[in-house]
Computed example of a mutant assay.
Amino acid sequence: MTSCLVLGKPNVGKTLFSLRFAFFLGARVVRLARAGEERTWASEEMAARELVSDQPHQTLAVQRLALEIRARKGSRRFDLVDTGGLTDEIPASQAVREAQAETLGLLRQAGVILHMVDASRILSPGAVEAAGEVDAQLFRFGRTRGAYLILANKMDLDGATEGLGEVRRRFAGAPVVPLSARTGLGFGEVKRHVRRHL
């Protein structure tokens, strides 16, 4: 089954986007598999309360959501894979290092790569969400793939409009979708990209 990998730095909104995008695609319930266990939620609010946090490295295991999307000939099944946050430095925590290694291990086999950045904080030196070397490396790798898309998230926050300009400058040559995981802005464009590459 094709996988659609959502990755980026900690706290850029990967998990909230993954949950809300699943419901946007028509999921009535979300079944999320991670580290050998499976959980089910009937609403994005319930799932978000349990899985989303302002603290970095809340996601310490790859989380797979089995989804379906309408395509030209019927529908296509795929895994939307929410990943742990990648950092520029080697983290002190072994659990975080293992989550990052697991994420990087999936990168080459992903059918679609959704590289998320925080447009509201990209210009904030020292912030965990600010763009860094790991984003530059993901961009270099992603440019070689036809199914690579940059999601400029948090467009609903102050500073995001200016940040979007920086995202486009920094990652020139890659397609960029202005996005808000909170409001759903840009979800239709992401859906079209994913459907095109499945």
Rank of each mutant, 00 (worst) to 15 (best):
D156T: 09
A95Y: 04
L67D: 00
Q63V: 06
N11C: 07
S18D: 04
L138W: 04
L104F: 01
V6K: 01
I90K: 12
S180G: 12
P125C: 07
M155D: 05
A47Y: 02
F17I: 03
R97T: 08
G74L: 05
A66K: 05
Y148E: 11
L7D: 01
V177G: 09
R97M: 08
L51N: 01
V176G: 08
S53I: 13
V194H: 07
L104S: 01
T161P: 03
G165R: 15
V6D: 02
R170A: 11
R182H: 03
E50H: 11
V176S: 09
L179P: 00
V81P: 02
P10F: 09
T103L: 00
G184L: 07
A47L: 06
G173P: 12
Q58F: 07
A42K: 13
C4P: 03
G163P: 10
A181S: 13
E45Q: 15
A130G: 07
L67E: 01
V117N: 00
G105F: 06
T161R: 10
R143G: 14
V128W: 04
A48C: 11
F187A: 14
K14A: 03
Y148K: 06
Q63G: 04
K191T: 15
V12D: 04
M46D: 15
G159Y: 11
T2H: 09
T15P: 00
T161C: 04
M46S: 15
E68R: 10
L104E: 07
R28P: 02
P175R: 15
Q100Y: 03
S124D: 15
L65G: 02
A71H: 12
L198F: 11
A181Y: 05
E68G: 06
V112S: 01
D79G: 04
E166W: 08
A95N: 08
P10S: 08
I90A: 10
L86T: 04
G163C: 10
F171A: 04
L51A: 00
A42C: 09
F78K: 01
Y148F: 15
V62H: 00
S180W: 06
P91R: 02
L106V: 00
V190E: 06
L107D: 03
Y148R: 06
E98I: 07
R31S: 12
A27C: 11
Q137M: 09
F23Q: 10
Q100V: 05
L123W: 08
I69S: 06
Q100H: 05
L114Y: 02
A61T: 05
R108C: 07
V194L: 14
E102N: 14
N11G: 03
M46N: 14
A48E: 06
R72K: 05
A101S: 07
S43E: 11
A136S: 15
L151R: 03
P178R: 01
T15K: 02
R97V: 08
L7I: 08
L151T: 03
A172H: 11
G126S: 10
L151D: 02
R140K: 13
F24Y: 15
T83P: 04
G165K: 14
S3Q: 14
H115W: 10
T83E: 01
A22Q: 02
S120L: 03
L107H: 01
A95V: 15
S124A: 15
F23H: 07
